[in-house]
Nucleic acid binder design. Structure first.
Length: 282
DNA sequence: ATGCCTATTATTAATAGA
């Protein structure tokens, strides 16, 4: 089973790129970020024609996240992180697909730092750590995937010294990511490619892609029981060079022994816990 | 230190991104 995360930077402006990549890469599950569209403008029909069911949490102009599943309907278990009920930004959606619980996230950028946006990023990270710990405690197989807006180490930045005061790389943000991982998560791309320079983002400015002046911002974190099944991981960096490309490229993993089977008929339920959704989605 | 580029929203300029 192949699981990917892709910050599309506008799902409607980017629809040809997204559809071409889906056809070429054939991911089974996709986490999308930066839809930049309200719920009613999500291109559900085009994605259905491409063979994908979807759940989404949109927002006018900014943010917005979605989970796609090939040949299946994701079973939504949550939208929005707990802990700040008046948070109006669409940055988290979670669903059960084929026996795996998938958390799709778009962590705040946080610039300029310091400032209110950076404070929001810190609070959002705290809420994510709390919720992620609860997911681990549930014992479910979980993938947390998305745009974390963090370069975890110096290896993940083309010029680390230029980024030390940036909200994506400040020590407290790197520490927050390290604390999240220390709960028991595994950074899938680093697990299979330690020491390798891997980027998922290249600025539109200054020919950043041509110069490979990139950042690794998009991550897939695995709960412990999925780690032995991790078979491959990579970045479809060519997508960044396509016409009308996003500034991010898709990152992906494949898991063995988790077969993407067709969906079985199932009973309707009015509400679902992650565990009932998982059993329904297996 | 700042702009560079790109998308969105709303009217040709502002905001946000990273």
């Amino acid at each position: 089973m192949k699981i990917a995360t892709f910050n599309v930077n506008g799902i409607n402006g980017r629809l040809p790129v997204l559809l071409r990549w889906l056809a070429e890469a054939e991911p089974d599950i996709v986490c999308l970020q930066e839809l930049k569209a309200p719920d009613e403008r999500f291109p559900r029909g085009a994605l259905e024609e491409a063979g994908y069911g979807a759940v989404w949490h949109g927002q006018r102009a900014w943010n917005g996240v979605a989970i796609l599943a090939r040949g299946r309907a994701p079973i939504e278990t949550r939208r929005g992180l707990p802990g700040e009920e008046d948070d109006a930004q669409s940055r988290y959606i979670e669903a059960a697909v084929n026996g795996v619980l998938v958390g799709c996230l778009y962590l705040p950028n946080g610039n300029p730092a310091p400032g209110p946006k950076f404070d929001y990023k810190i609070r959002w990270f705290d809420r994510l750590k709390t919720h992620a710990a609860a997911l681990l405690k549930s014992g479910a197989p979980v993938v947390l995937a998305g745009d974390f807006n963090v370069m975890p180490t110096e290896l993940d930045v083309y010029k680390p010294e230029r980024w030390v005061d940036d909200a994506l790389f400040r020590p407290e943000i790197r520490a927050a990511f390290a604390e999240l991982v220390a709960e028991g998560w595994t950074d899938a791309l680093r697990q299979l490619h330690p020491g390798e320079v891997i980027y998922t983002f290249w600025d539109y400015f200054r020919n950043a892609y041509g110069r490979n002046a990139g950042l690794r911002l998009d991550h897939l974190l695995l709960s412990p029981d999925l780690v032995p099944k991790l078979a491959a991981a990579g970045v479809d960096r060519d997508v960044r060079g396509w016409e009308k490309a996003s500034d991010h490229a898709p990152a992906w993993i494949t898991l063995d022994d988790v077969k993407a089977s067709r969906q079985r008929p199932r009973q309707k339920r009015t509400s679902r816990t992650p565990s009932t959704a998982l059993s329904d989605a297996s």
